[in-house]
């Protein structure tokens, strides 16, 4: 498996990145760890005449934990997230989810930005970011803009990021309450058959807020507001769980693939969500 020939750029600053993107338009793509893009190039399913390697562009590898928000640079890897003790304290769901992505080698190379910006419905971080109500910072020739994760995904590999823009950082409100990232997969290294991100707040036995997003059950990640709402005001009892699952099932739209037919995926999505809610609630 040999990719087609391409020109390689390794700019040292974002201005240069943007000018190459401007010059080559659709023919240029940025790359962080490359672990989604390079296999696609080798299979010749992605044609990238101009490849821009972001690794020398500074300022995208930091994890900043503020009083209310957490800012994570786009080049932070999954293994950086796993190893960051302070981050695991304030947003443990990031570590829990990262450990379920791919395998150790891939986590060393795979970045948060790449996982998010690629728009692959199989990636785990997009749904998680929607659950956490993250905001993505993208920069283009016209400067920076912020796009809510919940508005970012339009279709498989189609996002609100314009061709000339680069995703540079993710800002997450410090999560509150209990969390869970629950994922069913066939083996390590596989995408999810179904995965659920849940962040839930318990106030005196009542759920006061709940955010739920599902992964690989539609052509985009699915933030299910109605599923979260179904839990709010309840004691997260069986009826509430049923209501949340029913609401979520109304929002997802899985397709048949080697992981199974639609009926199976819907069923597993429900089971996984129930388990995620139960675990998150037990931690809330």
């Amino acid at each position: 498996m040999i990719p087609a020939a391409f020109e390689y750029y390794r700019p040292k600053d974002m201005d240069k990145v943007l000018s190459i993107l401007e010059e080559h338009g659709d023919d240029a793509r940025v790359m962080a760890g490359g672990h989604s893009l390079i296999p696609m190039m080798k299979l010749r399913m992605a044609d990238v005449p101009h490849l821009i390697d972001l690794q020398d562009v500074g300022g995208m590898s930091e994890i900043e934990i503020g009083a209310d928000t957490i800012k994570i640079g786009a080049l932070v890897t999954q293994s950086d997230i796993i190893d960051h003790a302070a981050l695991a304290d304030v947003a443990p769901i990031l570590r829990e989810a990262s450990l379920q992505i791919a395998d150790p080698q891939v986590r060393y190379m795979g970045t948060l930005g790449g996982n998010i910006a690629n728009g692959d419905p199989g990636n785990d971080m997009p749904g998680l970011m929607q659950c956490l109500d993250a905001t993505f910072t993208v920069v283009g020739q016209d400067g920076e803009r912020a796009i809510p994760a919940r508005d970012f995904y339009e279709a498989a590999y189609v996002t609100a990021r314009e061709d000339g823009e680069v995703l540079t950082a993710v800002t997450i409100p410090r999560p509150k309450g209990g969390h869970a990232y629950e994922k069913q997969k066939r083996k390590i290294g596989d995408y999810a058959t179904a995965a659920a991100s849940v962040q839930i707040v318990n106030d005196g036995g009542k759920c006061v807020s709940a955010a739920i997003a599902m992964t690989n059950l539609s052509d985009t990640p699915v933030f299910s507001k109605t599923a979260g709402d179904a839990l709010v005001g309840t004691s997260v009892d069986d009826a509430a769980l049923k209501a949340a699952v029913a609401a979520m099932l109304g929002d997802i739209d899985p397709t048949e693939d080697n992981r199974g037919p639609v009926a199976f995926k819907n069923h597993v999505a429900g089971v996984i969500l129930r388990r995620a809610i139960a675990r998150a609630w037990s931690r809330a």
Binding site: Q184, R186, T193, R259, G260, P261, A263, F264, H267, V268
Partner: peptide, 16 residues
């Protein structure tokens, strides 16, 4: 016997 086929067996036996 991958996950979905095992699930299907359970489903067809009325275990869900």
């Amino acid at each position: 016997h991958d996950h979905w086929r095992i699930w299907r067996t359970a489903n067809e036996l009325g275990l869900h």
